[in-house]
Design a protein around this nucleic acid. Structure first.
Lengths: 177, 177
DNA sequence: GGCCGCATGTAATCTGTTACATGATTCT
DNA sequence: AGAATCATGTAACAGATTACATGCGGCC
């Protein structure tokens, strides 16, 4: 079992922090358009696949619960390993700007559920990352502008602007608790 | 042969507008870090795969050119169909915000090569798209804020900020010819 | 009778990335 | 002798999307 890089599927573990749930129920929470559903869309069939993976990885165990007049439910329970993996994932800022759009927003959702403290520290960690990116882009931008590379300048101006917008959004999030 | 949605691989056709080239030469142009290479990275092995696809689709034909002391070159020629496909692709604005980062920047590169007029009209078309997105996001944002959905508001504030940054970049591009 | 909700999945497909395979010449 | 450049590709693996498959109960 390879130690896969902590990716978005670890978010699913967060749904099981309070009590065990079955796949369909998780999907209903996930599909709430006003909540996490506004950031992350995951078809039911994909959800089942991911839950299977997490089980294979030892982050989940399952029990089956028969029901009358309805198909039996398969309850997923978070293991200790799973809890550790989730907490590690949720506290780690994302490494690339392109991951804010999906993965960071999902992290933030679960961090807020864990408590205001965790959300605050996640925001701060991500803001620092973002400031580093901005400095790097600024340096590249200056270099491109100095060497008269028109197109390279356009490209990095675009990236600079995107990162700048991320940064001011993060600061705004930190300012309004 | 399915009419695949016009995707990034159509950009490769743009390299053959002036004269036929072989894969390795295209890759060298593509790898120029100060130019298109700053927006699009494509490993050589993937490039060959994509060129094969474009040939199957009827956008390219090939001739083989033997060389002394070196492996023979396979020259790719743009067909009439290929030219049409390229010109259609390059003039079409992208449909989603997430495609600006890569596909739009590549379109812009080739539009500029085609002439200032094409670049200008592409920028204008994309700016209009972007303004539409912004209006939609604004509407959603207001709705989320009004119904007191804290997390939904955060998510859409993020998106709003990203689109806003795209828009001002596009305007800046239009202003500096 | 047909569609929606509940509840579970598998399979096919497409795309993207990385690794591997070959072979000559030129540079250090 | 070993690395880089020129030149072509195939194959394996990972991830995401879509389609397909099953079955019961309740509602219109």
């Amino acid at each position: 079992m390879r130690h896969a890089s902590l990716s978005i599927e670890h978010a699913l573990l967060g749904f099981l922090r309070q009590e065990p749930k079955h796949g369909y129920a998780i999907h209903q929470e996930l599909s709430d358009a006003g909540s996490i559903g506004s950031a992350w869309r995951l078809p039911l069939s994909q959800l089942y696949t991911l839950l299977g993976k997490l089980e294979n990885a030892g982050y989940l165990t399952t029990t089956t619960e028969p029901q009358e007049n309805k198909p039996p439910r398969k309850l997923f329970h978070l293991t200790d390993q799973g809890e550790i993996a989730f907490l590690t994932w949720v506290q780690e800022p994302v490494r690339h700007g392109r991951s804010l759009r999906l993965e960071f927003l999902v992290k933030l959702y679960f961090a807020r559920l864990e408590g205001a403290g965790m959300a605050t520290s996640l925001l701060a960690a991500q803001r620092k990352k973002c400031q580093q990116w901005l400095v790097k882009e600024q340096a590249i931008l200056d270099r491109e502008a100095a060497s008269g590379r028109e197109y390279g300048r356009l490209v990095h101006q675009f990236r600079f602007g995107q990162i700048q917008a991320m940064l001011s959004w993060l600061e705004q999030c930190e300012a309004t608790p």
